[in-house]
Amino acid sequence: MKKKGSPIQTAVVYLILLLFSAAFLIPFIYMISIALSSDATANQAAYTIFPREFEFQNFVRIFTESDVPIWLKNSLILTVCNTVFTLVSSSMVAYGFARFRVKGKGVIFMILLSTMMIPTQVTLIPQFMIFRNLGWINTMLPLIIPNLFGSPFYIFMLRQFIMRLPISLDEAAKIDGMSYWGIYIKIVVPLIKPALAAVAIFAIMGNWNWFFEPMIYLNQTEKYPLAIGVQILSAVGHAGQLPLWNLMMAAAMILVIPMILLFFLGQRQMFELSISTGSDSIK
């Protein structure tokens, strides 16, 4: 495989890859082109694949003429709270599963893994009733509070990572009289920072793009996160007019751009962790 192929072979591979790249990139370029179109073009849906107009004003307009600033603020609150909460709770639980020898741990861990298979819809209706009885409908609490209790997938990822750390560090600290809480805070957490960074990126992306539950629990425009806001723009338009797809795509780009920046900042951690988890979970 590492052997150099013949020039013709290389050329064919390049050609196929370039064709695929074009197929993957064109929708992206089209999005930019729509976002930069004028209202006139948008009204006739006469977009071109490559941008022909450059109405950067659209990005200003979505902030002044629509609810994008409010939605953006909601998305930020949701994402920051949930990422912090899930990191703290998931890493605690992961440490518990990785480092303690307790009877029945294996069974509990199997239950945790099997919950990943349960579709969220099965628990959705009773959860909705719980939150309704608490008077939490149309607030962010039903979306935030469950994150205090760890997420099975992140617990699994972090547990795998902790298990790869040498246990001698824990043992040494224990001999020095450090408590388990101290070991978790002072030894484990600093050592799993790369894994925490990766989980943080996944959590940020998940919460930023979250659609289903926010739609169930929130029912006022000014409560929505941006992911739903973009859908609202596509459905009802702004200022009571027909939806303007150029503005809607500009808002969509506000949703996309931070994710791409995040990817370039953290792609190493992300790839490493998802790859090691992928290969662990199949064993």
Partner: peptide, 25 residues
């Protein structure tokens, strides 16, 4: 005891947000 302490967030969450809702639904 420490094991149960560390995994308690998930255990509580599992009871409230998974086990009970599954039985209820």
């Amino acid at each position: 005891a420490w094991f149960w302490f560390f995994i308690s967030p998930w255990i509580i969450g599992f009871c409230i947000f998974t086990a009970f809702p599954m039985l209820a639904s």
